[in-house]
Amino acid sequence: MAKVRGAIVVDVEKCKGCGVCVPACPQEVISLAKEVNGKGYHYAYMNKPEDCIGCANCAIVCPDGVISVYKVKLDN
């Protein structure tokens, strides 16, 4: 069975740290950073990148459209 791996790229400087993506992630991959961006927001990042399945749930609820999603199918 093919295994799916994903990854997201957050536009850190445009992220407002609203956190709406955090509960949207079925894999609990995303957290808000302890650090802040140039605007003072705790931006979103992949805390557990190995669990990302590239479902894009985070990106489609992101109000600022700052998340891009990548996905690959890996053959076991």
């Binding site: 791996r5 990854a7 990148p49 894009a56 891009s68 999603v69 990548y70 996905k71 890996l74």
Partner: peptide
């Protein structure tokens, strides 16, 4: 596989609309 190897243009499945 490191997640950085996934982030390639051919693997892009969602991005912000180019009309924004």
């Amino acid at each position: 596989m490191d997640f950085k190897d996934i982030i390639k243009p051919e693997n892009l499945v969602y991005r912000r609309s180019s009309l924004l």
